[in-house]
Design a protein around this nucleic acid. Sequence first.
DNA 1: CAGCATCCCCCCAGATACTG
DNA 2: CAGTATCTGGGGGGATGCTG
Lengths: 127, 127
Amino acid sequence: MFDFCSSMTDEQDGRARELIERAAAKWPLRILHVLSDARAPLRFSRLMERVEGISQKVLTQTLRTLERDGLVIRTLYPQVPPRVEYELTPLGRDLLMQVVSLWRWIVEHLDDFDACKAVKLTATANA
Amino acid sequence: MFDFCSSMTDEQDGRARELIERAAAKWPLRILHVLSDARAPLRFSRLMERVEGISQKVLTQTLRTLERDGLVIRTLYPQVPPRVEYELTPLGRDLLMQVVSLWRWIVEHLDDFDACKAVKLTATANA
DNA sequence: CAGCATCCCCCCAGATACTG
DNA sequence: CAGTATCTGGGGGGATGCTG
C-alpha cells in the first residue's frame, strides 16, 4: 500500500514528515486558515485578532516558521509606524488545500470515529 | 474556497482539528505507518523495535491515544508472559491513506518548497 | 513481556515589559 | 504597530526501577 515510500529517499521522507507535522499543528493551521479566508494580505494586528487565543510571541514565531517553510510571505513597509503584511504563497495555498481535503474527510467520517468508540466500549463492557 | 467550513459546527471543526493534529504528529504517524507496513498485528516489543527512537513510555501513551481515537485495536492475550498485539482499525487504515496522500503530495512538491526559499533568499540579498 | 510508577529535566508556551 | 527581551511554570519526554 505504501510502496511509494521506497521510491523516496530518507531525506525526502524526513522533510515531508516535518512539513506535515508543522503545517498540521494547531497554530500554523489556524493561521493558514485565517490568511486563506481573508483573501488579502493581513497585518500582524489583524492576525492577532482573528487567530483567537494566540499570544503575540507565538504568532511571531509561527509566522517565521511558515515563512521559512515557504508557505507565507512577509512584506515590511518601511514607514512609521511600521506596517507588515502577511499573505499565503501559492505553495502555501496549495498545501492548505491538501490539508483541508484531509480535514473535510475527517469531518465527513466523524460518525465513524464515534462508532469505533461505541464498539470499543461495548466490547469492554462484555469483557 | 473554504465555504464547507460554514457547514460544520464548531464542535465538528474542533474535533477534526484535534484528530488532524494528533494523527499528523511525529510518533502517531510513524506508528500508524509501521502498523500498516506490517500488514499483521504487531506485539508491543516489535513496535518498539520498528519505531526507531521511541521510548517505551511514549509508545504506550501514543498507542493509548490512537486506541481512544479509534485508529488502533489493542488485543490482550491473557497468558504468562502476557502477549499484546496492536493493529490498525479499518478507520485507522483509511485515515492513514488520507494522510499518506497528503504526504505524497508534499514529497512531489519538495522542489517547489526549495524554490520558495531560493526566491526568498534572492529577494533578501537584493534588499 | 508489557507495562506502570517515579524522578528529573528541559523546552517552550504564555505573560509581562520594553523599543524602533 | 510590530515586534524583541526576559522570566516563569507546566508538560512532554527520557531514564530507571518495579510488577503481574
